[in-house]
Amino acid sequence: MRYENLAEKLKSIGIEESPRNLSNKVGRGFFTAGFFLQCLDSLGVKTLSLSE
């Protein structure tokens, strides 16, 4: 998925992020768990398995 696509999906749930800002967050490798959950929600993820 491209950052442009993710920015559009986040916008659909009320989160305003530019593709460049998303690229910077991911590139730094540092963002909040809340932001991660917002990304999952915007992508339609309903379940998450954390098994080994």
Rank of each mutant, 00 (worst) to 15 (best):
residue 7 A to K: 07
residue 52 E to V: 01
residue 14 G to S: 15
residue 22 L to C: 09
residue 49 S to C: 09
residue 47 T to P: 06
residue 48 L to R: 08
residue 46 K to Y: 01
residue 25 K to F: 02
residue 28 R to I: 02
residue 20 R to W: 01
residue 43 L to K: 05
residue 5 N to L: 14
residue 41 D to V: 09
residue 23 S to K: 15
residue 35 F to N: 05
residue 34 G to S: 02
residue 7 A to S: 13
residue 11 K to Q: 05
residue 40 L to H: 06
residue 16 E to L: 12
residue 48 L to Y: 08
residue 20 R to M: 07
residue 32 T to D: 07
residue 4 E to S: 11
residue 48 L to E: 04
residue 27 G to M: 09
residue 11 K to H: 11
residue 44 G to W: 02
residue 33 A to R: 11
residue 42 S to C: 10
residue 27 G to L: 08
residue 19 P to K: 06
residue 44 G to N: 03
residue 24 N to R: 13
residue 42 S to E: 07
residue 27 G to V: 13
residue 45 V to Q: 05
residue 16 E to M: 14
residue 11 K to R: 12
residue 5 N to R: 15
residue 31 F to H: 02
residue 28 R to G: 02
residue 3 Y to T: 11
residue 31 F to D: 02
residue 9 K to Q: 10
residue 43 L to N: 05
residue 50 L to G: 00
residue 6 L to M: 13
residue 8 E to I: 05
residue 32 T to I: 05
residue 2 R to S: 14
residue 18 S to Y: 05
residue 42 S to T: 06
residue 12 S to G: 03
residue 22 L to Q: 12
residue 20 R to T: 13
residue 50 L to D: 00
residue 17 E to A: 11
residue 38 Q to V: 03
residue 5 N to D: 15
residue 19 P to G: 08
residue 40 L to S: 01
residue 8 E to W: 02
residue 50 L to M: 12
residue 35 F to M: 10
residue 7 A to W: 01
residue 3 Y to R: 14
residue 17 E to K: 14
residue 35 F to C: 03
residue 22 L to G: 08
residue 32 T to Q: 10
residue 5 N to V: 10
residue 16 E to Y: 07
residue 48 L to F: 01
residue 20 R to C: 04
residue 48 L to A: 09
residue 30 F to G: 14
residue 13 I to P: 09
residue 42 S to R: 11
residue 49 S to Y: 01
residue 10 L to Y: 01
residue 4 E to P: 14
residue 12 S to Y: 01
residue 31 F to W: 00
residue 21 N to K: 15
residue 28 R to S: 11
residue 29 G to I: 09
residue 8 E to F: 00
residue 3 Y to D: 04
residue 33 A to H: 13
residue 6 L to Q: 11
residue 51 S to W: 00
residue 7 A to L: 07
residue 21 N to G: 03
residue 49 S to E: 03
residue 7 A to G: 08
residue 14 G to A: 10
residue 43 L to C: 12
residue 10 L to S: 02
residue 29 G to M: 12
residue 17 E to D: 15
residue 13 I to L: 13
residue 11 K to L: 09
residue 9 K to M: 07
residue 4 E to K: 12
residue 40 L to P: 01
residue 45 V to F: 00
residue 11 K to N: 07
residue 51 S to F: 00
residue 44 G to I: 02
residue 50 L to A: 03
residue 10 L to K: 13
residue 45 V to G: 04
residue 30 F to L: 12
residue 20 R to L: 09
residue 40 L to E: 01
residue 49 S to L: 08
residue 16 E to F: 05
residue 29 G to Q: 07
residue 26 V to A: 08
residue 9 K to H: 07
